[in-house]
Simulated scan of single mutants.
Amino acid sequence: HFLKSIPFALDNVQELFSQGRIAVELPELKKAIEQVVASGQFEPFDTERGAQSLLTVRIHSFSYKKGGIPPDPSGNGGGFTFDCRFLHNPGRYEPYKQLTGRDEPVINFLQHHSKMGEFLNDVFRIVDEAVENYIERSFTNLMVSFGCTGGQHRSVYAADALAKHLKEKYGVALELEHIEQEKKNWINK
């Protein structure tokens, strides 16, 4: 959330400087702001460009125990695979056993009792660089997979979060598959 607010903050500070509404002289701050703006580092990505690109990002959740890492149908030999098993597992507690990473109690658990947020920030940073590079180079496929023990809680939540992030930030074509959950028609006993 903080990173998303930076472009707006930069615009606001520039506007204050241009209108002379800052009561004290801050030449070094003004110079630093100008350098950050000139770098373009915080410019939002053109989602229309992403939507018109050739890139399709395939995102999977899977179970290491039941099926293992999914094959890459593009023939490129795979992509990123992130292991969610180190994160606190809601599936170890009775109230969550029949739920998935899409259910509100599990979402709350992962957001408040695990390091899921930190993990996803790192994933977004890594995958964003690949997506931007692949769009620039006119690549057609990128695969990102999230695995956990049963493919039910952590990996489902992480795959959904990445899909939402990429859709909002880049507008690229997405294919989202929750391998274990789709096999069970989302019914967990």
Rank of each mutant, 00 (worst) to 15 (best):
K4Y: 10
S5F: 10
F8R: 14
A9K: 12
L10I: 02
D11M: 02
N12K: 13
N12S: 11
V13D: 06
S18H: 01
S18W: 00
Q19N: 15
E25L: 00
L26C: 07
E28A: 03
K30Y: 11
S39P: 02
S39W: 00
G40S: 00
G40H: 03
Q41T: 09
Q41I: 06
T47G: 05
S53H: 04
S53R: 03
L55D: 03
T56F: 00
R58L: 05
R58H: 02
S61L: 11
S63W: 04
Y64P: 04
I69S: 06
P70T: 11
P73F: 01
S74V: 11
G78R: 02
G79F: 06
F80K: 11
R85C: 11
N89E: 10
Y93T: 02
E94G: 10
L99F: 13
L99V: 05
T100C: 07
T100Q: 11
G101H: 13
D103E: 13
D103Q: 01
E104D: 04
L110C: 01
S114H: 06
K115Q: 14
M116K: 00
E118R: 08
L120P: 01
N121S: 09
D122L: 08
A130K: 04
V131Q: 00
S138W: 01
T140A: 14
T140D: 10
V144M: 07
S145L: 11
T149N: 03
T149C: 06
T149I: 08
G150M: 05
V156H: 08
A159M: 06
L162P: 05
K164A: 05
H165I: 06
K167Q: 08
K169Y: 05
Y170A: 00
G171F: 14
E177F: 14
H178Y: 07
N185E: 15
W186H: 15
I187W: 01
